[in-house]
Design a protein around this nucleic acid. Structure first.
Lengths: 220, 220
DNA sequence: GCAAAAGTGTTAATTGTACACCCATGT
DNA sequence: ACATGGGTGTACAATTAACACTTTTGC
């Protein structure tokens, strides 16, 4: 009788940092990097397990987490080993919200180019997460999950350019966002930067919802 | 030590029949209806298992099958029973390609209203499959998977109306389809119907691909 | 000849796209 | 005063949306 397959819940955390879309990896055994993951407890819903992986292994909370895909194609060479089914979730994190600096934490952000070699399906999982985010960016409000609660329109603009990988005209972008009415000015301004201080906005989930109902969309 | 969870691969087959989007169910134990499903063999990729479910339990082949979602939230009341993780796939079938008529086959199509009560997450799985299809219809060529190799533009038109659940202007629809150039006339005509016979077309996958690359889309 | 379904163009409204300069701050 | 990044409007092109009648067949 074959053993039943081992189940793993894998978390792909994404952020935009330094103008690049990055993935969070964790130092696993020895030298190797890996996506954070865990086996769910027998009575633990998959999604809650994904949240737990993020809390325990990254010491962060994500506001947004969604199931990505289930991978189960890798059959182990050694037939004694049970096959691993990986249920993946992807989460979005504003830049700087995960503390990677502390020595010994063993976690770090990697952009696509700088990514170390990963075992099994993990490179595939990351590729799929990035492509899903790209897809969702234009017809949902996910982009805002990658920003802090208050942000400037310039930040939002850069975010869209980075994820979609193309230039978007600044004026058209701002017109669209304002026309849709999905952000509201907070009244405060960013301080400290080099140039003119930016007005800060917050995302209006209610306004976004009513747009979704109408089928309006922020395609660029 | 808790038992590891049981894995099931579940298939949601969809078709458009009689102006409604329908799901294929199978008579399971006794009176109850259920989605076709099976446990994957230890060395069997999940997708292949889904194909096997369709072949063995429905005696059909589907040209199009895609992973839908993995459900694992239902914790059994009896803690001795292992939890079931359901990896679902959804497939599209042209009307009439599955033979449900033979006595004793125990399979039948159900539209959303006529659906019998189903155990566990199955109603949820079906809802998700329908909504995914709706979402994909506008930016991919999946709609054509629900039609036979040769079809009329009127059939295609009705298909879009049924799945999206709204009227689409006939002339605008036909203009768009012809403008995009994703169908080519076969030269033959439908026979037998009541009114004027319809010209038949086939889907041009090549033309569709080149549109996808440009980001053009058949949104209605 | 009539019912039933297929087929066909034009116009107005909306939406998307291209484009260049001034403004407020830190150094 | 200059370098840096933030902020603003308009005109043209492209796309979408609204709209009614003719054609071909089976009965």
């Amino acid at each position: 009788v074959p053993e039943s397959p081992a189940l793993r819940v894998v978390a792909v955390l994404l952020t935009v940092s330094g103008g690049r879309l990055c993935t969070l990896l964790r130092r696993a055994s020895g030298e190797a990097w890996a996506l954070p993951s865990a086996a769910p407890a027998p009575d633990e819903p998959l999604r809650r397990c994904a949240e737990r992986v993020v809390e325990e292994q990254i010491a962060a909370r994500v506001d947004w987490l969604e199931q990505l895909y289930t991978f189960g194609n890798r059959i182990p060479q050694d037939p004694a080993e049970p096959r691993v089914i990986e249920v993946s979730y992807y989460g979005l994190v504003p830049e700087g919200l995960v503390d990677t600096s502390q020595a010994g934490r063993g976690i770090a952000w990697f952009d696509e180019a700088g990514q170390p070699p990963l075992a099994g399906d993990q490179t595939l999982i990351i590729r799929r997460a990035r492509s899903r985010l790209r897809g969702k960016l234009s017809y949902t409000g996910v982009g805002f999950e990658l920003l802090p609660a208050e942000f400037s329109l310039a930040q939002l603009h850069r975010l869209y350019e980075v994820i979609l990988g193309k230039r978007i005209d600044k004026r058209n972008f701002r017109h669209r966002i304002k026309l849709l009415g999905i952000v509201e000015a907070t009244g405060s301004e960013a301080s400290g930067g080099r140039g003119r201080p930016a007005a800060l906005y917050r995302f209006s989930a209610e306004a976004f919802q009513s747009l979704e109902a109408k089928g309006d969309v922020l395609a660029f």
